[in-house]
Simulated scan of single mutants.
Amino acid sequence: MRSNFNSSKNWSMNKHEIFFAVGPSQFLGDLGGLNREGTQKSIVDLDWSSTRIGGGLGYRFRFHPRWATSTQLYFALVNGADSNTDEIIRRSRNLSFRSPILELSQRIEFIILANEKRGARYGLGKGMRTKADMLYIFTGISGFYYNPQTKINGSWTNLRPLKTEGQGLPNGADEYGNLSLAIPFGIGFKIAIGEFWRIGMEVSYNKTFTDYIDDVSTEYYDPAILASEVGQDAVYAANPAIENHSWFTEGMQRGNDQDKDAYLFANIVLTRNITYPKPKRGRRVKWRGRTKF
Results as ranks from 00 to 15, higher is better:
Leu162Met: 07
His16Ser: 05
Phe138Met: 10
Arg93Trp: 03
Pro240His: 01
Ser25His: 07
Thr71Met: 15
Met13Cys: 14
Tyr59Gln: 05
Ile213Met: 07
Asn14Pro: 09
Leu104Tyr: 15
Trp11Ile: 00
Phe97Gly: 00
Ser142Trp: 00
Thr275His: 04
Gly127Leu: 06
Asn84Gly: 03
Thr51Ser: 15
Tyr146Leu: 01
Gly282Trp: 02
Asn94Met: 04
Tyr236Val: 12
Leu73Glu: 05
Arg290Ile: 08
Trp156Asp: 06
Gly231Asn: 05
Ile88Cys: 09
Ala238Gln: 00
Trp197Ile: 10
Gln106Glu: 15
Asn79Ser: 15
Leu34Cys: 10
Asn244Val: 04
Ser7Ile: 12
Leu46Trp: 04
Pro240Gln: 01
Ile268His: 07
Gly186Tyr: 05
Ala132Asp: 14
Gln72Thr: 13
Thr130Ser: 08
Pro148Tyr: 03
Asn115Pro: 10
Ile187Asp: 01
Asp47Gly: 00
Ile191Lys: 12
Arg288Ala: 08
Val216Leu: 01
Trp67Asn: 07
Arg118Gln: 14
Tyr122Phe: 13
Asn158Cys: 02
Leu113Gln: 15
Gln106Thr: 15
Tyr205Gln: 05
Thr208Ser: 04
Ala114Thr: 12
Asp257Tyr: 09
Leu104Arg: 09
Gly166Glu: 06
Pro170Ile: 00
Asn6Phe: 14
Tyr263Ile: 05
Arg62Cys: 06
His16Arg: 05
Leu135Ile: 15
Thr139Gly: 15
Arg2Lys: 13
Tyr145Val: 00
Pro277Trp: 00
Glu87Leu: 05
Ala227Thr: 10
Ala182Ser: 04
Asp233Ser: 14
Ser49Tyr: 11
Pro170Val: 02
Ile18Val: 15
Asp233Gly: 13
Phe209Gly: 03
Asp261His: 02
Phe61Glu: 06
Ile53Ser: 12
Met134Asn: 15
Gln149Met: 14
Gly123Ala: 14
Leu31Thr: 08
Gly33Ser: 02
Phe75Cys: 11
Gly186Asp: 05
Gly38Val: 08
Gly23Phe: 05
Ile225Val: 12
Ser246Cys: 09
Ser42Ala: 10
Asn171Arg: 09
Glu116Gly: 08
Lys117Ser: 11
Asp215Glu: 09
